[in-house]
Design a protein around this nucleic acid. Structure first.
Length: 564
RNA sequence: UGGGGGAUCGUCUAGCGGUAGGACGUCAGCCUCUGGAGCUGACUACCUAGGUUCGAUUCCUAGUCCCCCAGCCA
């Protein structure tokens, strides 16, 4: 397990836990992360994971990983595996504390029998429609089911037969007997069990009766000795029911539910339903599409667990609804990668530069620093020759104000190499597009050479044409053009997907040291951003994902100029 | 307008009766063989109205606005 950050900011939940320990209300801390295995984890889950595991680490307690698998129709072992991978990748260890709500089905059933015997639950044989109708509305009380006062014996008999498979789906449910007139709708005799004749991925066909969340969750917590059951705000008004279930079941241990605000991020979606929709409609390539805020997506995009954890710590834990700007997440991955990513040169949109006074056929190896932030990272050799590629953006035939890069008659430094001066350009006779730039270099200005100190306005990156490796580079922009909260509920939100969220660049040229780049390897392409080697590289072509761009002052200047 | 929650810089978040702090962002400058990184400085906030108090973001009262709940989902 990772060690807790001593500087980690406190929050109201940490305060509650600390107080419970100080007051003697609790002698130890047991939390849990309880995903339902019906989808992949996203960064919102990471917030919960960091909170729950973090609390346990802080107090030398334990944090359970519990699969809340009470709905056989949507759950799948694929998700169980993926969730475990993700939690582990994030850096957390549940040790021997892996549990499944489905392991408690027998005990849950026994508690239900007790509830029935105590007159606290009954079998309702109404249709789903009738139950809904009798539930009342937000402003009107519900009305009792005609089956509400069945005898304990009748209920017991019916419930046993439900378990035995004598009834079809939807014909009977077990309901808590609380109060049909409660202003809290969750207390209007909520459903505890429903019949589902479908195969559960773990219990197979052993059951055709499945407990609801409101029944299974509090009891699972109680059974596991969870002290602090942390969940999101939408369960706040389920808390009286949570407490009721635990109280009526009479479990020796009483867990406490505490709610916090879920994470929202700008320009993306975070609900399982919407993520699933994107995957199923093939609007993205899969759960690990680098545009997705899923853990798998972020991982493929090149995020590190450290950056995600630092982000989760920075956003805090509170009860007010909050939408974090994507810029904050980007800040943390830049901060992390700046310290650890090896620097390389890669040209995304190549423009050929011929250095006319550089001898034909000559090549030399120049020293390049691997990471200025980490002296221990050493250096490498980069080949240089008469023809190099530079970025199309780094040349302007007619430079705008404050443009420091290459233009006719101007000088720039080729990083780690020489100062070159642009003498002429070659244009496509048909389109007029610049296809080649001709320069002369000053041999004295080689890095480390006698005139190396000469100042020029800019240094640009390059790759030797004959030594370059071909690559594909994928650039990502936000998935959504706007925030989900700004899209009307009656509008198909997928219409607001950003059509430019993925840009695939082929014909990119990268320095030869990248030949040994391993899948998942993270690099900084100097002056451009952080990139990682995509698994698609295994298909033969070196492929990179841009994790995040570098901060780009020039882009801001240009944008400001265009807007004024 | 039944119930449950929540309102502090543009965005997050701290504050627990004693000059409203931090982070991201933004702007300006320094520095730089990455227009990166780093460093300086600046910017902008207590939902409203009353009350209690020497003093209120904090306590009280009344409003306003926002979120959640009417699945046999979780």
């Amino acid at each position: 397990m990772t060690t807790p950050e001593p500087s980690a900011p406190s929050n109201f939940i940490r305060d509650i836990v600390a107080q419970d320990l100080a007051s003697g209300k609790r002698s130890h801390v047991v939390t849990r992360f309880p995903p339902e295995p019906n989808g992949y984890l996203h960064i919102g889950h990471a917030k919960s994971i960091c909170l729950n595991f973090g609390l346990a680490i802080e107090h030398r307690g334990t944090c359970h990983l519990r699969f809340d698998d009470t709905n056989p129709e949507t759950e799948d072992p694929e998700y169980v595996q993926a969730i475990q991978d993700d939690v582990r990748w994030l850096g957390f260890d549940w040790k021997e504390n892996k549990f499944f709500a489905s392991d408690y089905f027998e005990q849950l059933y026994d508690y239900a029998v007790t509830l029935i015997q105590n007159g606290k639950a009954y079998v309702d044989s109404s249709s789903a429609d009738d139950i809904r109708r009798r539930r009342g509305t937000l402003t009107e009380p519900g009305t009792d089911s005609p089956h509400r006062n069945r005898s304990s014996d009748e209920n017991l008999d019916l419930f046993r037969r439900m378990k035995a498979g004598e009834f079809a789906d939807g014909t009977h449910v077990l309901r808590a007997k609380i109060d049909m007139a409660s202003p809290n709708i969750n207390l209007r005799d909520p459903v505890l069990y429903r019949i589902r004749k479908s195969t559960h991925y773990r219990t197979g066909d052993a059951w055709c009766l499945y407990p609801s969340y409101d029944y299974a969750h509090p009891l699972s917590d109680a059974l596991e000795g969870i002290t602090h059951s942390i969940c999101t705000l939408e369960f706040e008004d389920h808390r009286p029911l949570y407490d009721w279930v635990v109280e009526q079941a009479g479990t020796p241990h009483r867990p406490q539910q505490i709610e916090f605000a879920r994470l929202n991020l700008t320009n993306t979606v975070m609900s399982k339903r919407k993520l699933l929709e994107l995957v199923e409609k093939k609007l993205v390539s899969g759960w690990d599409d680098p545009r997705l805020p899923t853990i798998k997506g972020l991982r493929r995009r090149g995020f590190t667990p450290e950056a995600i954890r630092a982000f989760c710590e920075a956003i805090g834990v509170a009860k007010r609804d909050a939408t974090i700007e994507m810029a904050l997440l980007e800040h943390f991955i830049r901060e992390d990668l700046n310290k650890r990513a090896a620097r390389v040169m890669g040209v995304l949109k190549p423009l050929k530069v011929v250095i006319e006074n550089y001898p034909e056929g000559q090549a030399e190896e120049l020293d390049a620093v691997n990471n200025p932030e980490d002296p221990g990272a050493g250096s490498r050799k980069v080949p240089f020759s008469r023809t190099v590629y530079i970025e199309q953006e780094d040349f302007r035939e007619v430079p705008p104000p404050k443009y420091f890069r290459l233009s006719p008659g101007k000088e720039v430094r080729l990083r780690y190499a020489y100062i070159v001066k642009c003498d002429s350009v070659v244009k496509d006779p048909h389109t007029g597009a610049i296809i080649e730039v001709h320069c002369t270099y000053d041999p004295e200005t080689r890095s480390g050479g006698p005139q190396a100190g000469r100042k020029v306005k800019a240094t640009i990156h390059w790759v030797s044409a004959k030594h370059a490796l071909d690559a594909e580079v994928r650039l990502y922009e936000p998935l959504l053009k706007t925030d989900l909260s700004k899209i009307p509920a009656d509008r198909d939100w997928t219409l607001d997907l950003n059509p430019h969220s993925l840009e695939r660049l082929t014909g990119c040229k990268v320095e030869p040291s990248l030949l040994k780049g391993k899948i998942g390897g993270r690099y900084q392409f100097e002056r451009q951003g952080y990139f990682c080697v995509d698994p698609d590289t295994a298909k033969g072509l070196l492929t990179f994902n841009r994790t995040v761009s570098l901060r780009d002052t020039w882009a801001k200047i240009e944008k400001a100029r265009q807007e004024s």
